[in-house]
């Protein structure tokens, strides 16, 4: 029996691939920005700058939350047809 999901998958066979690639690219982008923030906060010249450390922490936390939230949209693993 065919349902909505099956027909969608048949109409767009590359959908899982595109979603997966998009999510991974976004995650790599988030992690890169976080590494940039961390590098700034660890910078010797800024070690006494509490406001910079606090701002980068909040930014990093938001990006981490976004990273976990985006996992909701990970496609389910492909199942072999019987």
């Amino acid at each position: 029996m065919s349902d909505f999901r099956t027909s969608q998958n048949e109409a767009h066979p590359n959908k899982t691939n595109s979603l997966m690639t998009g999510i991974i690219v976004l995650l790599i982008l988030f992690v890169s920005i976080q590494i940039w923030f961390l590098f700034g906060a660890l910078n010797n010249a800024l070690q006494d700058n509490l406001y910079f450390a606090l701002t980068t922490f909040i930014g990093s936390l938001l990006l981490a939350a976004a990273s976990f939230w985006i996992l909701r949209y990970l496609p389910d693993p492909l199942k072999n047809k019987k």
Binding site: M20, I24, A41, F57, A64, S67, F68
Partner: peptide, 29 residues
Amino acid sequence: VGRREFAKFLALFSGALALTNGAIVIKSL
């Protein structure tokens, strides 16, 4: 290691980076 696991690992790494940034704030305070 499939792409799902890789994506989950990236999210975990992202969380770890946020925690490290928090540690700097705590040390500074």
